[in-house]
Structures are given as C-alpha cells and as structure tokens.
Amino acid sequence: MERSLWQVIPLLVTTTLSAAAEKELPRAEISVRACLACHLLTGKPGDGPPALTMPESRFVAAMGAFRSGQRRGSVMNRIAAGFTEEEIRDMARFLAHSGTRGK
C-alpha cells in the first residue's frame, strides 16, 4: 500500500509542482520541496505527519498556530518560526494550487 502510493507521488510532484511554479511562487515551491523530506504531498501519511495538500485557509491557520506557539507540536513550532506570514501564505496558495491539479 505504502509502496504503491509512493510510486504515484513522484508523478504528482512532477506535474503539479513544476506546472504550478512555471510563472508564480518559485520560492514557495523551493520551501515545499524541503518539507517533502518528512511530509507526503498528497495521500494518507500512515504513521507520519499529515500530507501537505490541504485547503489554503487550513494550511495558513495551522502554520500560524505553530508559529505563535498557540498549538504545540515540538517539531512544527520550530519550523514554522523560520517562515514569515507572507511565505506561509504563498506556500498555502501554492499547495492549494498543486492539490487541485493533482486530483
């Protein structure tokens, strides 16, 4: 199951990330690639952290809450603190975009 999912992911990454980044949000794309070391782009994460593709508002809210410390998650507090609000909004926009294309 995990394996077959992973065989699909590279295709999604190719078509969605590069297509979405053609004209816009190249920085957001670079940031999102770094996240893929731990997160799936889409799909069921199993025992891992949640997949990145989610509604724009949910991504912004989650990262905002980690950034402010309102939501505690050990790892994500530290990572969210490294991004500005604008960068988080760009990543959310980029992911929402790639998510709809991926489906």
């Binding site: 920085r27 794309e29 670079i30 770094a34 996240c35 070391a37 731990c38 990572i79 490294g82 991004f83």
Partner: peptide, 10 residues
C-alpha cells in the same frame, strides 16, 4: 535564474 532558497534541517 533560480529563486533564493529556503532550506530545512531536522
């Protein structure tokens, strides 16, 4: 030209 990178270590 490539954009400037953001990198993560964990």
């Amino acid at each position: 030209d490539a954009g400037t990178p953001t990198l993560i270590n964990h």
